[in-house]
Design a binder for these strands. Structure first.
Lengths: 252, 252
DNA sequence: ACCGTCGCTTGATCTGGATCAAGCGAAGAT
DNA sequence: ATCTTCGCTTGATCCAGATCAAGCGACGGT
């Protein structure tokens, strides 16, 4: 039996070189030999389930985590005891980059559905990047990409109304799923309305009403967690702030 | 006369090792020899003036920029033609990290007052970090710190009201100026009310009214651009969301 | 010294989205 | 199979902060 177990685990624990995410994940652009070296330091844990934590705010920072399958949300505590959802993470996305600076996690990461996660001990990764220039570059890009994403969110929270925010959220999900070989127009939400609202700086009720409105307007179908985008073009135009007579933005 | 000019420029172009910012800036934690190597790739331009650009969105990414003296704002265009102020940058702070990923600047950087800027060509920096582990680590920390800062802003824009936002802004400025050896309670704003509002996701009028209110409440003195913080403790408590009967936050 | 512009303030009004309230149906518990 | 809880929806009301409007005073330019 223990023999069987080893075999089945080996089946689950796909090496980086065979992982379908290698074009999105850390190995992106690496030579095969370098992928092997990276592969050696990656720990592949058993599948985690809804509600499990990868880490909690306040934990010592040791590793980066990469979603292999499933999805994860990260969220930071706010002083009053509430929390701010910082992101929803899909396969190939790296989690924990914000903790490198202080060596302590400032946010928590919670698994939204049964997920496989790769753990990359950071100290060992850092040693590796020092000897593999292309991996170092990939790390810089990864960190920079995260900043760029946060910047997009700042613009969204600072300048966009509820409709624009939800449309942007749906299209972002759609594009990211599509990159992973899934449908861009037909997918399931692994997060609750509440989590979406928190993420977008909106109340649950507003999110719910907008789903209803988008459906009434023929932009999408919503059935519980099941989403079908029917009119991506119009959704795109909503994001652009084509919200009718939006007055000229503050030019500072 | 040209002789005089050369001398005066040399006076301005302080080497990293003599720069008072070395404890905040890239050289932080480097061995003296390594600081010299870094110093060799840094370009020190002549002082820039209010309104000058370090780069504009769409520009090819070539260098990081570090504020030596003065201040800089970064801002991203929003689809509708407006803009979102992303940050105000003080001496020692590094600008341009978000452009590493796409190799194109997605935001612009504009000088708010006469400022000295160091330019660090990124390709050369990358070569250097590959051979100086402590510099590589410093780069990771720098990028990570930027993510952490953006995260703080997401929480601010997503969960805090106008009062909390302005208090947080003032205290952030205060702390950062203090770290640079300046007064934590008495300083000048190099940015306009409009820029503050844009940054904080508020209308100019709201910013103006809050300044007036904070002054009436004895928390600070405001005279044009001149700020004096009188009651830092109360300002701190405002940020914490002690805004009276704030209801329990959404727990997603 | 004068003028025009621009940044800032203050007051009045409006509104998008939060909050409050009430039900409904699905999924998990016993 | 039934209960209970929880997530979601929908309606009614409220309010923080945006928008509109009007002046004022500082500063740069001539």
């Amino acid at each position: 039996m223990s023999h069987h177990k080893v075999i089945s685990l080996e089946t689950i624990r796909i090496a980086c070189r065979n992982c379908s995410l290698s074009s999105l994940c850390l190995p992106m652009g690496l030579a095969p030999d370098d992928v092997e070296r990276l592969d050696e330091i990656v720990k592949r844990t058993r599948p985690l389930h809804r509600g499990d934590f990868l880490f909690r705010d306040g934990d010592r920072f040791r590793s980066l985590y990469v979603v292999k399958t499933g999805s994860v949300k990260t969220f930071a505590p706010s002083p009053e005891g509430g929390e701010q959802v910082l992101g929803f993470h899909l396969p190939g996305e790296v989690i924990g980059l914000d903790a490198i600076d202080k060596d302590i996690h400032a946010c928590s990461a919670k698994v939204l559905e049964t997920s496989a996660i790769c753990e990359v001990p950071f100290t060992r990764l850092e040693e590796l990047t020092a000897t593999i220039p292309s991996l170092q570059h990939q790390m810089y890009r990864l960190l920079s990409k995260e900043i760029g994403h946060d910047t997009d969110m700042l613009l969204l929270l600072g300048k966009k109304n509820a409709e624009e925010r939800l449309a942007a959220f749906l299209l972002s999900l759609s594009k990211r799923l599509h990159k992973r070989g899934l449908s861009a127009t037909d997918f399931y939400l692994s997060m609750s309305r509440h989590e979406i609202g928190n993420y977008l700086g909106l109340a649950v009720e507003t999110v719910s009403r907008l789903f209803t409105r988008f459906q009434d307007d023929g932009l999408m179908n919503v059935d519980r967690k099941h989403i079908q985008l029917l009119d991506v073009d119009t959704l795109e135009s909503l994001v652009g702030g084509a919200g009718q007579n939006r007055r000229q933005q503050q030019q500072s």
